[in-house]
Amino acid sequence: MITRLIALSVLLILPLPIVIVVLSSFTSAGYLSFPIHGVSLRWYGEFLGSADWLRVLGVSAVLALIGAFVSTAASFGAAWAVVRHRMRFGATYETILLTPLIFPHAAIGVIMIVTLSSLGWLGTFTGLVLVHCILTIPYAYRPIVAALRKSDPALEEAAASLGARPWRTFWTVSLPAARPGLVTSFLFSFIISFDEVTVTLFVVGPHVMTLPVQVFSEVLESASPVIAAVSATLVLFTTAIVFVLDRFIGLQFFVERD
């Protein structure tokens, strides 16, 4: 009974602040309030009419695409070596790949400042890509390694014994078998990167800014409802990704243990 009461309140409250932000973005007032005073799309107009906001949105989207692609590819290589080549110290290597998860974000932020400034990449797009790849690898690795462990190496052996060359076996047998894992990794990394703010705010610069970091600094300085409109757009991206994940892989994936 009490379990049910707690569970239902938690399940109700978890999406609540997000719903409130989306609703408050439709206010016609010049200040933020809830319930809203009057309905309008003026703050969406301000967001989409601003070259600065659109540029930042573009940076975030391209960054997340490149980061997700690199992370997924790097994780695929690592997972292939661990699972298919049965490399020595594979379990240790897996633990190393997960290390970014067991460090507090504020500390990772300073680590990234130290790293990027020694490479001369602080405040550059290249630097952001590097940081986001490191942050998303733990998320990208797990779905791929799970998919590879599930697929049967005997199929590849069969293809090879029927005379398929290694590359052909790879393209026609191995890759399709790993596809669900690759898609999950890519989408998962994309959304982690697209939403990341705590570490990113240390490494952005005057010339490159991401959408969540821009929202963060605007919230600190002003209370303009345009922030709600931008936030609602971030929510829209997440909704799209969750929808695709649900359709193609199923949300069950997130609560499975390998």
Partner: peptide, 11 residues
Amino acid sequence: LVSIVVRSYGW
């Protein structure tokens, strides 16, 4: 999966 900045702002 929604950005923490959006959720904190919601609060």
